[in-house]
């Protein structure tokens, strides 16, 4: 199927088209494209590449734009064209580059710098030519870009008994994705602790809480859902939840 010509030597491509014979120093060889050696090479190389790719799954998970498919499918579907990056009116979406820890060419957000402002028309999704951002997402409140976690309970000042509520106030799905739970401050016994609690069924992972956190390093962070969520074994039954049904 493939006609390959053995290489000429640099500048010396000799021309003798007029005479109709092949140029000096050249032979035309016919070689099957998938010779045994080639086949072994291609499969072997493919396996090597696959082994390399398996490392991708162990990478740091990134906060993805709204509608992003599951991580592995997302990074393979994405054509890395950057049209979502450009569509974002807040420049929230960045493009992964080699060495950034995020799959190169794929879009991601760094909420601490610029969170997702959850535009109602979700301009980043319809421009995606690959469907890596699911065009079925029409309600931004149903997005799962990640999940906020109160990751540092030791430094969150609300948990030390100071009034803060900044993440609660910043949350665009206020009173649902983050609620404040009150309990007695055991240290003073006179005050309350207002603990911010994230509800995974409502949190879109927009990152406004992380962006707003007043600490030098945020105590609340958006992470990939897979990184954060646990999974109950099937043998665990919450009887009190079943009673109501």
């Amino acid at each position: 199927m493939d006609t390959s010509v053995t290489q000429s030597h640099g500048s010396g491509v000799d021309r003798s088209a007029k005479s109709g014979r092949p140029p000096v120093g050249m032979t035309t060889t016919r070689r099957g494209f998938l010779s045994l050696g080639g086949f072994v090479g291609v499969v072997g190389g493919g396996v090597a590449l696959a082994v390399l790719s398996s490392g991708a799954e162990k990478r740091v998970y990134a906060q993805r734009p709204p509608g992003a498919l599951k991580e592995m499918e997302f990074i393979s579907r994405c054509v890395k064209c950057g049209q979502c990056v450009r569509a974002c009116p807040y420049d929230s979406i960045l493009m992964g580059e080699p060495g950034s820890g995020v799959a190169p060419g794929t879009p991601y957000l760094v909420a601490r710098n610029v969170p997702c402002y959850m535009c109602e028309d979700i301009p980043c999704v319809p421009v995606c030519p690959s469907g890596a951002l699911d065009h079925g997402l029409t309600d931004i409140n149903k997005a799962t870009m990640g999940l906020a976690v109160l990751s540092d309970r030791e430094n969150c000042i609300a948990l030390q008994g100071l009034r803060c509520e900044v993440c609660f106030t910043a949350c665009p799905i206020q009173g649902q994705a983050i609620t404040l739970e009150y309990r007695v401050n055991e240290r003073t016994r006179r005050h309350s602790i207002f603990e911010p609690v994230v509800h995974s069924d409502k949190c879109t992972g927009c990152g406004k809480c992380e962006h707003a956190c007043i600490l030098e390093e945020p105590a609340i962070k958006v992470m990939a859902v897979k990184q954060v969520k646990g999974k109950l074994g099937r043998h665990y039954r919450f009887g009190w939840l079943e009673e109501g049904q």
Partner: peptide
């Protein structure tokens, strides 16, 4: 010149086995 066809083969086989289009990154 034909080496690049093998390279293309490797890229496609790699993507198929791993489920990740690694080369594009």
């Amino acid at each position: 010149s034909s080496t690049k066809y093998y390279m293309m083969g490797i890229v496609l086989v790699g993507a198929t086995i791993s489920g990740v289009a690694l080369y594009e990154m």
